[in-house]
Structures are given as structure tokens and as C-alpha cells.
Nucleic acid binder design. Structure first.
Lengths: 197, 197
DNA sequence: TTGGCGGATGACCATACAGTCATTATAATA
DNA sequence: TATTATAATGACTGTATGGTCATCCGCCAA
């Protein structure tokens, strides 16, 4: 039965990816051991290689899946928001909460985004779409006179940077406030900067 | 002759640290090979172990030295600045330029700050001093009525986060503007947020 | 009950690498 | 120059680990 096979197989893959995320988050790419991933997934090492060609491929699968999930969630929440301020809040909050819920994944992103060479080009642009959408919203609001005119794309990236930096600080344990609070501060700050004139 | 010995020894240590920085930046901690560090320093692997007990110790030395340098530079430039806006600019610009000049180091910081377990506690707080100084400046300015009243420490961290995020984006090659330009945008944005009422 | 089949296993192999240490080269001193 | 002290070397060792593959297991149809 083809369908059932496929389902079982997808399930196994997902289990392995979950285990891998946890191991890589703890040890990084080079430090993460396939045997450990297998253990954590409750299977033998050999089995891992039935589902993935290599350690690299497992790593890529982890990042792929989680980035896709994070990007999708962010875009959806932004679409649901009405005005600019809400969109900014949606963007920031989605990312902060995502980071909170998936600390492990974000620790990987933080840890090896820039250093494991084969992931760089793959992941350079995953934020671009949400940011560009934010930029459009800023531009529209400026055109309608709700905020002062600003270089919208640059400002959008700045908001993204601020969010990223906040996530990082939270991951390092230098913030013990709930994500909503950090987000609110960020949104208020940004709004003050945009509304001013 | 004690002094000369010491000098030679310090010089060698520095050479090794320089080579290590380059290797670790390229490959991460686990991926960085001691033999490669030795080669790059133009010495044999055994010699490395005359100056450092272990690979970990080399890694720590790299981070120690560069963080110290970066922190010192940032504080000095902030002290030299007169008013709040200049202090914010000093803080941001010092860090951006530092990141530009020492891409390798920052790539390490970015890469493994949060994942190599033995470095976490060591480096969690290296930014604290500059940020707290920025917070004081904000507080003073608010007291003098130059800006609106804000939760100074939180805002200071927010500025730090924004700077960190910008550095990260620059490292990933998503920004091709000179550091001064990014800094100016950031400072202007922050100033608008603070001056607003 | 048997035969066959695909998924699962883990012992095994080859390689890579951190760290050691006996030996050698170099410099200081007398 | 001879002697001693110090720095440097790189072959070697033990261990860890990515990836393979002969074998096994459990299920199902006949």
C-alpha cells in the first residue's frame, strides 16, 4: 500500500528531524553525532541512513522545515493585521514567540547560520519576504500621511534587525520578560520614531 | 633573560591566536583543526601545545582578546562623545566599524556565542558595561528634558539589539552600505523615537 | 506453516583528529 | 668551542565518529 508506506516514512523522517534539531542545537553541526540523533529518535544509526543520505542532509532538513514554518507563520499573522502598527507588532511578536516556542531551532540558526558554509546561501534570504511586506506597509502608511516619510525598506530591515537582536538576547538568557513585553517595547519605540515630526 | 623570553612567548601566543581566529571563523570550534591552526601560524602542532593546554583554551583566548579589544574601544569612543546623540552614535559606530574591521572575530561571535557551552557564561555579559553606560546617558538626558522620559535600561538594550542585528545582517552580506551609513540611519531612528512626544 | 520481502539493525571499517613525547635544532653561557 | 638550557618538531597513539552492509525480524499471502 503506497500511501501508508509514504506516511510511515514521512513520520520517521519527522522523528529523525526532531531528534536532530535537539542534538544539533546542543552541540552544533560538527559536534552533533549521528549515533546520538538515532538514539534520541529511538532507532539505530543504520536506520537514519535509510531516510537521509548524510549528516549534512539531516541538518539541511532541520533548517528547511523550521524556516519554512517560521516564515509562513509570520506572513499569516502580518496579513491578519489591519493597520501598520498592528503589522509591526505581528511581525515582531510572531518572530519572538516563534523563537520562544522553538528555542532549539533558533539556537541553531543563531549558532551556525553564518559559519556552516553549505547553509549560507540557502538561508540568506529567508526573511526577505516578510521584511519586504513590512516595507510596503510602511510605504502605504507614509503615503496616507499616517507616519512621516521614511526610507521604507531600510526602516523595515532595521525593525527586523532590532527583532533579531532581541531574540538573540533572549536566547542568551539576558531577558526574563515574556515575549509580548519585549515586543510591546519594540513596537512602541518604532512607532514613536515613525510618528515623529 | 626573563623579559625577552616573555616577549617572544607573548608574540608566539599572539601569532597562534591570530591563526586560530581565522580557522575558527571559517570552520567553527568543532570543525577547526589544531593542525590547520599550526600550519597557518607557520609552526608545528606540538608547538601549539607549548603555548596552550588545549583547543578549548585557544578558543577562549581568541574570544577573550577580541572582546576585550572591542569593549575597550567602544567605551573610549563613548566617553569621548559629549551629548547623548553623539554617545549613541559612538556606541553604534564603534561596534559596526569593529565588526567591519574584524569580520572574522565577529563571525565567531555570531557563530558560536550561544552554542559552544563552555563559552556561554564567559561571554554573556561582555556588552553589559557599554550598555549600562548608554542607559545612564539616556537617563541624564531625560532628566535634563532633552528627550522624553523612557525606561532607560530597556531602551539602551534595544539600541544594542538593533546594532547587533545590523552587524549580523552586514556579516551575511545583506548590506553593502558603509558602516557609517547604517549607523546614521540607526541613530536618526533612535533619536526620533526618543525626542518624540 | 512456509517463503518472500522490505524495513531495521549494529558490528565493522576507514578516517580524522586531539593531544603526547622522544628526539632534534637553536640559542645562551662559560 | 663545549656545555647546558630551551624551543620546536612531527611521528605516533587512542579515541571518536561518519557511513556501510551482511544479517535479522516481522508481517503477509499462499
Amino acid at each position: 500500500m503506497k500511501t501508508k508506506q509514504k506516511m510511515v516514512s514521512e513520520f520517521r523522517r519527522a522523528e529523525i528531524v526532531d531528534a536532530a534539531r535537539s542534538v544539533f542545537a546542543r552541540k552544533g553541526f560538527a559536534g552533533g553525532i549521528v549515533d546520538e540523533i538515532a538514539n534520541e529518535a529511538g532507532i539505530a544509526k543504520g536506520t537514519v541512513y535509510l531516510y537521509f543520505r548524510s549528516k549534512k542532509e539531516i541538518y539541511r532538513a532541520v533548517l528547511d522545515r523550521d524556516m519554512e514554518f517560521s516564515k509562513k507563520g509570520t506572513l499569516e499573522r502580518m496579513d491578519a493585521a489591519g493597520n501598520l502598527k498592528d503589522k509591526i507588532r505581528a511581525f515582531t511578536l510572531a518572530r519572538l514567540e516563534n523563537a520562544e516556542a522553538k528555542k532549539e531551532f533558533f539556537r541553531i540558526m543563531d549558532a551556525e547560520f553564518g559559519s556552516v558554509s553549505f547553509t549560507r546561501s540557502q538561508y540568506r534570504d529567508w526573511l526577505r519576504e516578510p521584511v519586504l511586506r513590512l516595507a510596503s506597509a510602511i510605504e502605504d502608511a507614509a503615503r496616507r500621511g499616517e507616519i512621516r516619510p521614511v526610507p521604507s525598506e531600510k526602516i523595515a530591515w532595521l525593525v527586523a534587525d532590532m527583532t533579531r537582536g532581541t531574540i538573540r538576547r533572549r536566547l542568551l538568557g539576558r531577558s526574563d520578560t515574556p515575549p509580548g513585553e519585549d515586543a510591546e517595547l519594540l513596537v512602541g519605540f518604532t512607532w514613536a520614531a515613525l510618528a515623529a515630526e
